[in-house]
Write a protein that binds this DNA or RNA. Sequence first.
DNA 1: ATAGGAATGAGAAGCTTTTTCATCTGATCG
DNA 2: CGATCAGATGAAAAAGCTTCTCATTCCTAT
Lengths: 139, 139
Amino acid sequence: MESKDLRKAGLKVTLPRMKILEILEAADDQRHFSAEDVYKQLLEAGEDIGLATVYRVLTQFETADLVMRHHFESGHSVFELNRGPHHDHILCVRCGKVDEFVDETIERRQREIAENSGYRMTDHSLYIYGICEACQSKE
Amino acid sequence: MESKDLRKAGLKVTLPRMKILEILEAADDQRHFSAEDVYKQLLEAGEDIGLATVYRVLTQFETADLVMRHHFESGHSVFELNRGPHHDHILCVRCGKVDEFVDETIERRQREIAENSGYRMTDHSLYIYGICEACQSKE
DNA sequence: ATAGGAATGAGAAGCTTTTTCATCTGATCG
DNA sequence: CGATCAGATGAAAAAGCTTCTCATTCCTAT
């Protein structure tokens, strides 16, 4: 992901946008960021970028299909860099852990259901909530 | 749905709670309400019930499993009376229409995925977004 | 380098939702 | 049936999260 991806999306290549992209890419462990998460990491990195800009940029990235916005049950948006194939999420309601999965059976059924209901499907979201292995063993 | 359902849930049978239940049940066409929706209907019905109470009561109903809270992409919670079998939702992104469906294949796969990922599944949410038949024909 | 339009930062404002606290109501017991 | 008291309510304040405003700054094309 680099400056040409921004250009392609019709976005000027600015320092805030590059820095935010970097953070989303760094993601050793974390791949799902709230706006606040990104903002905090920018502060830690010594970047003087406002929270309003973070929101603006993330929204533009979403429009440009560079990131995907999720609506988990947490009450705020969570952003994820758009790379690799489509996948859905399974979340731990105790610790907040997020795992990903792909299931072609479910994907196919969804398309069939949309078709049978007369809808032209544009998108879908599937979240499975549960208690992860680690949290179960703590009980 | 009546007072004994409230008692069973450990909730006192109060006027606000009964009125809110009535509104959720009335639902000739609508079955999905935001807190604001419920509040407006209470006002129209001449009931002097505060918005804070609506939120409180809906949250209690959710805890008591009387209603289900949905997180559509609209940015606010939507509540639905818990009756009939479990179902998922397909929504029109143009007009906001909400349809329901049940698909045992998807249900089963979800349980399998949770199990394979080491999760004890507590819940799941599946929303299909698309453009409904009526909106397609307007294009 | 320069000009002009786009982008940014800071703070205000907007929305949804929750909290606070004084007042009121409904269940229980006499 | 009336007193009692925990629990419920209303109004307003406050708390998130997110967007908007506007003066200033930064890119890009010239």
